[in-house]
Simulated assay, not measured.
Amino acid sequence: MTTSLLLSTERKLTIMANTSDVKSLLDAGVHFGHLTRKWDPNMAPYIYMERNGIHIINLYKTAAKLDEATQALRKIAASGRKVLFVATKKQAKDIVAQYASEANMPYITERWPGGMLTNFVTIRKAVKKMATVDRMKKDGRYETLSKKERLQVDRMRAKLEKNLGSITDMTRMPAALFIVDTVREHIAVKEALKLGIPIFAMADTNSNPRVIDFVIPSNDDASKSIEIIVKAATDSIIAGTEDRKSEKNAEDQLKAKEKEEKEAAKAEAKAQKEEAKKAKATVKDEEE
């Protein structure tokens, strides 16, 4: 698939994307879909053509949809809410863990724990067990346990850490999910749909885009493709977090200024009151 072949689609699109962005997506192999026999017909609007039995994704539409998704993610981050990243496939795990951590967002890269969203209270209880073990080790209670009991506690802690370690700070439901491969993560998709939680997702040609709120048509199997999309998503989240900090700083400065003005007004009023009192005393002395 040559660059010129993909560039020829530019005239056919109503929403045009930046050519350099499309070139980056092309270099990362984002345009390679699945075998044509494995496609989902609902992905037809995002497919440019078929080549050697493989569907080719229209990268101009990918770029436009990615831009739409990143803007929405930035707004979520600016509001102070969390986006839960989900990717349990081998080629995506490390990439998602790295970028989600940099953006200070929770992520699931091992196994999606059934009821993660629909039974969030139970999941939080499991997370609290981890905290309890940590407290036991700090206050000395851990040392009072027998060798067998310590081994059991350590195994339980390790298992919970592996499955839930990245969501220990997620004290409330996420504002949205970012999923790599909705076909593989169908349980996560089902739970999010049930609770009305927005879904951002990389959708390959075998995916059903109708269940995704912010679909990003892209190759969800190649590590380079996954990295370029996930990085764009987390960069927008980091930008949103910075927006929130800037807004908070501006609000703090405004409050500080208002406080100063209020205190200055009080001081001035007090001074005027004292001046009036002195003037009144002077007049009284003169009268006497």
Rank of each mutant, 00 (worst) to 15 (best):
A69L: 10
R37H: 08
R244W: 05
G140T: 09
K75T: 11
G240W: 15
M170C: 07
V153L: 12
S101W: 03
Q272K: 13
E260C: 04
R51Y: 10
A239N: 06
P174N: 11
Y142Q: 08
A78W: 15
E258A: 07
A222D: 05
E275H: 05
I95K: 13
T9S: 09
M156G: 02
A28Y: 01
K129Y: 11
V86Q: 03
D235E: 11
P113W: 10
H186M: 12
W112V: 07
P209E: 09
R172D: 06
I197Q: 01
F32P: 00
Q272E: 08
M173L: 11
E275G: 01
Q253Y: 03
E268W: 04
T109E: 04
I229T: 15
G165Q: 09
V22Q: 07
M130W: 00
S166D: 02
R141S: 07
L35T: 07
A232D: 09
R124G: 04
H34F: 13
S8I: 00
N119C: 02
N163D: 06
Q152D: 10
D169T: 13
N42H: 15
E143K: 14
A267P: 03
K128G: 01
K82N: 09
P41F: 05
V153E: 05
V230L: 11
L26G: 01
M105E: 02
T118L: 12
Q253V: 08
Y107M: 00
K284N: 06
K278C: 02
Y48R: 13
D40Q: 15
A126V: 00
A176K: 03
A201H: 06
A256N: 08
L193V: 13
M1K: 14
E242G: 01
Y107D: 00
L84I: 04
K61T: 07
T241E: 08
A28S: 10
